[in-house]
Simulated scan of single mutants.
Amino acid sequence: MESLIRNQEMRMTESEFQFQLIKEHLKSNKCNYVFIVEDATSSICRIDYDATSNSFIGFSSPLIDGVPQPNYFQTENFKQLELWFNEIDKAKVINLYMLKSLVLSDPPFILAAYGSNNKAKAIEILKKWLFIYHQSLIQDIHVIGFSTDADSRYLRAMRLCSRFFCNITKF
């Protein structure tokens, strides 16, 4: 992943989706139909300071309508930082979102990455997918599907999306 970021000459910010760069990435193949792939990978819990964004990374990013909030952990107050260390979950996994054009020769594109405590509910996952879908449409990019592993929360989100033996009021 690190070499892909370097090859794409990207400056990644935790929890920030790179929607403004999608169109540029897809310009060469003239295909605006994509698939989004999501995966979570275990990570070592560690808090770092990112001087570029003036924020602390490594805490579990809070979700608002399923979407992680970039630069949420910004402070110059030691008491606030101490409170976060004592009360906020450290990120146990890294969630990674990749975008892949339908053109086979086109390389994948890193859409976003963020630390998580891996406690998101199915409805939050579905809301995040809807956010990605709508933000991509604004860029005239059509998301034709999402792919992930067999985590039960993601399967529930897929069932919610398709209304397959499930009721949204239960989630």
Rank of each mutant, 00 (worst) to 15 (best):
S3D: 10
S3E: 14
R6S: 09
R6I: 03
N7Q: 13
T13M: 05
T13R: 06
S15K: 08
E16D: 09
Q18V: 02
F19V: 03
L21R: 12
K23I: 07
E24V: 04
E24Y: 05
H25Q: 00
L26R: 00
N29F: 07
K30M: 12
K30Y: 10
C31N: 13
N32S: 13
Y33C: 09
F35G: 07
I36M: 07
V37S: 11
V37K: 13
D39G: 14
D39E: 13
T41Y: 04
S43F: 03
S43K: 09
C45D: 04
I47R: 01
I47K: 03
D50P: 00
D50C: 12
D50V: 14
T52F: 08
S55Y: 05
S60N: 11
P62C: 06
L63C: 04
P68Q: 15
P70H: 11
N71Y: 02
F73Q: 03
F73V: 04
T75G: 05
T75M: 05
T75D: 03
E76V: 07
F78N: 01
K79H: 06
K79S: 10
Q80K: 14
W84Q: 04
F85P: 00
F85A: 00
I88E: 01
K92G: 10
I94D: 01
I94C: 02
L96T: 15
M98F: 14
L99W: 08
K100H: 00
S101N: 03
S101R: 02
S101W: 13
S101K: 06
S101D: 04
S105A: 09
P107C: 11
I110S: 10
A113M: 14
Y114I: 01
Y114A: 09
Y114E: 01
Y114L: 04
G115E: 05
A120M: 15
A120H: 09
K121Q: 13
A122Y: 03
I125M: 08
W129M: 13
L130M: 09
F131M: 05
I132D: 13
Q135S: 14
I141M: 08
V143E: 01
V143R: 05
G145F: 11
G145W: 13
F146N: 06
T148W: 15
T148H: 14
D149H: 05
D149F: 12
D151I: 07
S152F: 06
Y154G: 00
L160P: 00
N167F: 05
T169F: 06
F171I: 01
